[in-house]
Amino acid sequence: MDVNKRIVAVDIFRGMTISLMVLVNTPGTWSSVYSPFLHAQWHGYTPTDLVFPFFLFIVGTSIVFAYKNKKPSLKTYKKIGVRALKLIILGLFLGAFTLSFPFFKDFENIRFPGVLQRIGVVFFITSALFLNLNWKKLIFVVLVLLFGYWALMTLIPVDGQPSTLTRAPNNLANWLDVQLFGSHNYKPDYDPEGFLSTLPAIASALLGVFTGEILVGKQKNKTALLFGLGGCLLIVGHLWDIVFPINKALWTSSFVLVTAGWANVVLAIIHYLSDDRKIIFGSIFKYVGSNAITIYFLSSFISKLFYLIKVEGEISVHEWLFHTVYVQDFIPLQFSSLLYGLSVVGFYCFLGYFLYKKGIFIKV
């Protein structure tokens, strides 16, 4: 198979993932959100907890399409390095921006980790591994990352206390983030994109690499292979949950397997419909996926502006818009909150369509 040939299912999957990222990040009010659109409080997972690992998974799959026939070279490393650096800088900008001159927060208030930062780091490391290792060695790397992280998080004592997987000072991931970043974390007691949990996040992308190899390979029953792989990952992940709980904030090894399992199952369904049966659907998601990072960045930046800019005294643009247009006596508040988020998604779907039709593809 020509690796440059577009696989429709991947484009649709990527666009759906970005659309869901926008939806769960922009409710009308965080005080009234349907539970599936919230993260699990700690252990366990909701549909929302699948979104970010789905994106890292498809990053891994896309790496196969981009670098399958490339050799390791200074030019290639420079290309992936520049792209990773752009993602990290954009993420830091999102965290640091404010309306007050000089338009950046005080240094001590800037968060260092973040979604785009993690994507950049994971993309760079996964690409480098893919360029240098065959699939057998990559499997070994995944096993080392997952079992090694399990051992680190459960066996190493912190400040003389037994390790714990709760939000506590002697949680190794929390403790290490505090040592490295100090106050530059999401919360004083945890960061969902922290330093140590980046290791299993790399495994999430590498599992996407294996799926990419299936999609560009010569196997005939690719949909069945994706279903089978997804089912196996789900079973093993849920069994591992017994001793190493599924946890998005800590990005536990069981979480990696379960989310990659669901990613394969969802991608298998889309692949069966779009690439096997040739049913035309989900084109709007394909348009969004063509400028995925651009749309995610714009949605995050504009959402931040809507919270920062005040109208009518101390009411933010976001609050004014939500309460003026979406909050009505005959609509439950949770549904109003969802409608706001769906409207935001609709706007960025239209933007994705416009950019696609104009042939504008912004490479970050």
Rank of each mutant, 00 (worst) to 15 (best):
I235P: 02
G237V: 00
W240Y: 10
D241Y: 08
V243C: 11
F244W: 12
F244D: 14
P245Y: 08
I246E: 05
N247W: 00
N247F: 03
A249R: 10
L250P: 07
L250M: 12
W251L: 03
T252E: 03
S253F: 06
S254R: 04
S254T: 08
L257M: 12
L257F: 11
L257V: 09
T259F: 00
G261T: 00
G261S: 09
G261E: 03
W262H: 08
A263S: 15
V266Y: 02
A268V: 03
A268L: 03
A268G: 03
I269P: 11
I269G: 12
I270E: 04
H271D: 08
R277G: 02
R277S: 04
I280C: 10
I280V: 13
F281W: 15
I284K: 14
F285Q: 04
K286F: 02
Y287T: 05
Y287Q: 06
Y287H: 14
N291F: 08
N291D: 06
I293D: 12
I295G: 04
F297Y: 11
S299Q: 07
F301D: 06
I302Q: 09
S303Q: 09
S303G: 15
L308C: 00
I309M: 04
K310W: 07
V311C: 01
G313F: 03
G313H: 08
I315F: 07
V317L: 14
V317E: 05
H318M: 03
H318R: 14
W320E: 10
V325F: 15
Y326R: 04
Y326C: 09
Y326Q: 07
